[in-house]
Computed example of a mutant assay.
Amino acid sequence: MGKYLLGLLLLSSCAALNATPLTFGSGVDEQALTQVSTILATPKAYVGKQVTIRGVVTNVCEKRGCWMTVKSDQQFQELYIKVPDGEMVFPLSARGSEAIVTGKLAEVSLSLEKSRDYLAEQAKSQGKAFDVASVTQPIDIYQLRPSGVKILD
Rank of each mutant, 00 (worst) to 15 (best):
M1P: 02
M1H: 05
G2P: 00
K3A: 14
Y4V: 13
L6A: 14
G7V: 02
L9R: 03
L9G: 00
L9E: 04
L10V: 09
S13H: 02
C14P: 00
A16P: 02
A16N: 08
T20K: 14
F24Q: 07
S26G: 05
S26W: 02
G27I: 05
E30V: 07
E30G: 00
Q31D: 06
A32Q: 13
A32T: 06
S37E: 04
S37F: 04
S37K: 08
T38L: 07
I39G: 03
L40S: 08
L40Q: 11
P43M: 14
P43S: 14
P43Q: 13
K44V: 11
K44N: 15
Y46G: 08
G48V: 09
G48I: 13
Q50K: 12
Q50M: 09
T52P: 04
I53N: 10
G55S: 10
V56I: 15
V57S: 03
T58K: 06
C61V: 00
E62T: 04
K63P: 00
R64Y: 01
G65E: 01
C66A: 02
C66V: 01
M68Q: 01
T69W: 02
T69I: 06
T69M: 09
V70C: 03
K71C: 02
K71A: 13
K71F: 02
Q74T: 12
Q74G: 00
Q75F: 03
Q75A: 14
F76V: 00
Q77Y: 06
E78S: 10
L79M: 15
I81H: 08
V83F: 08
V83Q: 11
D85M: 08
E87W: 06
M88H: 09
V89E: 14
V89R: 10
F90V: 05
P91Q: 01
P91V: 00
G96H: 02
E98T: 15
A99D: 12
I100R: 01
T102H: 06
G103Y: 10
K104W: 02
K104H: 07
K104A: 12
E107S: 11
E107A: 14
V108Q: 13
L110A: 09
S111R: 05
S111A: 13
S111T: 15
E113C: 04
E113L: 10
E113H: 08
E113S: 13
K114A: 14
R116L: 08
D117I: 07
Y118T: 12
K124T: 03
S125A: 11
Q126W: 12
Q126M: 14
K128F: 01
A129V: 01
A129D: 06
A129F: 00
F130R: 01
F130Y: 06
D131P: 01
D131C: 00
V132L: 12
V132E: 14
V135L: 11
V135S: 12
V135N: 12
T136W: 11
I139N: 15
I139H: 15
I139G: 11
I141K: 15
I141F: 13
Y142G: 11
Y142D: 09
Y142T: 12
R145F: 05
R145L: 11
S147Y: 04
S147D: 06
K150G: 01
I151K: 03
I151W: 04
D153Y: 07
